[in-house]
């Protein structure tokens, strides 16, 4: 992914305290409140969430912009809401 500056997210959600499938459910519900093209920042755990959440988001037509490690076992995911 090109290392360009992304606009600040329009909303954030932390899914490190929940497990599958509530992880993805929380992200979906957070995206419901955004308009297509707006950006959501997701804080998520290593392992199953990092493997599945970005893929599920792509399957539903959203655009994963960036996934970066926070260095503490959590990741930060930037996702752009797709068309409904």
């Amino acid at each position: 992914m090109p290392n360009k500056t992304l606009p600040p997210p329009d909303s954030t959600v932390d899914i490190t305290e929940v497990v599958c499938p509530v992880t993805f459910v929380k992200v979906k519900v957070a995206l419901d409140d955004l308009e297509p093209g707006q950006i959501l920042s997701v804080r998520l755990n290593d392992g199953e969430p990092v493997e599945n959440v970005p893929r599920s988001l792509k399957d539903e037509g959203h655009r994963v912009l960036k996934l970066s490690a926070n260095g503490d076992g959590t990741y930060n995911l930037l996702v752009e809401k797709g068309q409904e």
Partner: peptide
């Protein structure tokens, strides 16, 4: 807005693309 308990209770509904949080 949903409570955490509702998100868990209805997770199998919400996870469906056709339903989602709106449904």
């Amino acid at each position: 807005s949903f409570t955490d308990e509702q998100l868990e209770r209805y997770s199998r509904n919400i996870i469906l693309k056709e339903v989602g949080g709106k449904g």
